[in-house]
């Protein structure tokens, strides 16, 4: 379990992250969503015990990351994929992974088994001896991901794993993340790709220095936009709008072409009354459907981009 308590970090003047309170369960896939400079990398670095928080703290597996002895244990249980792959470019993929496996204290037997397995899964086995400097971006990223996994960490932190990749390589990486999720590992994914967050993760936290919102995509949708329902009519007349606005449970009514978008707090309870009312006024209802809010709408609303 990852738990942050008032976690914050300042850099001479700039506040990178402030008052972060978060709790991530074991086995959960969590996405940290935010624009550039939102403090995603800073947060991950704090959680990996690379830099110290200036305020608050965090507990990983109940270990306080301010404690020096705990830091070693925390790092042991974490696999980090940083923003840059940062491989030893003159060395081969196998050698790169072997070095890290040794530092993580993986036994000789497990080392060989694990590295072979990872390289084969990632389709790099045939090129394991080649200097990785010659690899494409996507291949380097795969080696870097394998590096984060050689010691079978409980927690995996990925800092914008697909940001620098072409769509095909990005898809390979994403599919691999889904595999990891199936294995039941706890995933912490930094991204500014909404689609990626939604596809890979169970829960999303929107960050801009402060945590603006956190929840499943559906929760976020209903929290920030209420539950909206679309009533498609043959023809919308002004009195329809007026009538609906005067109903007690209706929060908001908008007209879009020949549709009425109606927000109520409890659609199950309130929608039948709306339909009856419209029909009573002689409106011809063609169909009724729930309005799905995309993550993008929520995100833009939160970070104030549109």
């Amino acid at each position: 379990m990852i738990e942050t308590v008032g976690l914050g970090r300042r850099f001479e003047g700039t506040v990178a992250v402030e008052d972060l309170n978060l709790s991530i369960k074991d086995g959960e896939a969590f996405a940290f969503l935010g624009p550039n400079g939102a403090g995603k990398t800073t947060t991950v670095r704090m959680l990996c015990c690379l830099i110290a928080p200036t305020t608050g703290t965090a507990y990983i597996n109940k270990l306080d990351l301010r404690d020096a002895e705990s830091q070693l244990k925390i790092r042991q249980s974490i696999g980090l994929l940083p923003e840059n792959p940062g491989l030893y470019e003159s060395l081969g993929a196998y050698r790169n992974l072997d070095f890290f496996a040794r530092l993580y204290g993986v036994s000789a037997k497990d080392r060989e088994k694990r590295i072979t397995e990872l390289l084969k899964t990632l389709n790099l086995w045939d090129r394991r001896e080649e200097a990785v400097g010659k690899f494409s971006k996507g291949m380097k990223q795969k080696v870097a991901i394998a590096r984060a996994l050689v010691h079978e960490p409980e927690y995996i932190f990925l800092d914008e794993p697909t940001a620098a990749l072409d769509p095909e390589a990005a898809k390979t990486v994403r599919d691999f993340l889904l595999e990891l999720k199936k294995e039941g590992r706890t995933i912490f994914l930094n991204t500014h790709n909404l689609d990626e967050a939604q596809r890979v993760c169970d829960r999303i936290g929107v960050l801009r220095t402060r945590l603006l919102a956190v929840g499943t995509p559906d929760e976020l949708a209903s929290r920030f936009f209420g539950r909206a329902t679309l009533f498609q009519l043959r023809e919308v007349r002004p009195e329809h709008l007026q009538a609906l606005r005067s109903m007690p449970n209706v929060l908001d009514v908008r007209q879009e072409d020949s549709s009425l978008i109606v927000q109520v707090s409890d659609p199950k309870h309130d929608n039948p009354a709306i339909v009856s009312r419209l029909v009573a006024m002689g409106a011809e209802v063609s169909y009724v459907e729930e309005v799905k809010r995309s993550l993008e709408d929520i995100y833009l609303k939160l970070v104030g981009g549109g």
């Binding site: 070693l72 030893y88 993580y104």
Partner: peptide
């Protein structure tokens, strides 16, 4: 330059 320190620093070494 190759940014290879960050993963190294993330390992359980002092």
């Amino acid at each position: 330059l190759s940014r290879s320190l960050e993963p190294l620093l993330a390992t359980p070494t002092t």
